[in-house]
């Protein structure tokens, strides 16, 4: 059996594109790396005054309840700092699994890809009031 050893967790880079922070998650994410990322993003928003965060998860193979919690917390923390978070590019298999797991991340805004996520953040009119409003209120 040849399984590449996971290697030492390296931090996930946070890029700034204007007022928006772009984070591209790697396929395999250690718990500690995810936690670190959460801190990094919070600090970056506070420091730069970013108004939006796009988390590109198109390369992520699985999202378990731990990563799900981290993502939800990033969004909530960002919201406290007046930045909106969009989760972009979730794969179908990951989405099905998350729903089955019981994790629907209702508070999070989602987009098909980074491009649309950026547009969503730059143009407040394109936001989906219906989807967000109705789900956030439900228990």
């Amino acid at each position: 059996m040849t399984v590449p050893s996971p290697g030492p967790p390296s931090p996930v880079p946070v890029l700034a594109l204007g007022d928006i922070l772009l984070v591209t998650l790697p396929g395999e994410l250690h718990d500690a790396t995810a936690e670190q990322l959460q801190q990094d993003i919070t600090e970056r928003i506070a420091r730069s005054g970013a108004t939006g965060v796009v988390i590109d998860i198109s390369g992520v193979d699985i999202v378990d309840s731990y990563l799900g919690r981290v993502l939800a917390e990033i969004a909530r923390t960002a919201a406290l700092l007046a930045a909106r978070t969009v989760l972009a590019g979730m794969r179908p298999a990951v989405a099905i699994t998350l729903v089955e797991l019981g994790l629907t991340l209702t508070g999070l805004t989602t987009a098909l890809d980074v491009d649309r996520a950026m547009r969503l953040l730059s143009d407040p009119v394109v936001e989906r009031p219906e989807a967000v409003d109705r789900t956030e209120g439900s228990p």
Partner: peptide, 23 residues
């Protein structure tokens, strides 16, 4: 996670099932 993915793929699990198993 990596091992489960590898073995599940080897056994012929489809992508969704693999993802469920790894999760």
């Amino acid at each position: 996670r990596q091992h489960v993915r590898l073995v599940a793929t080897e056994l012929g699990f489809g992508l969704v099932q693999q993802t469920k198993l790894v999760t």
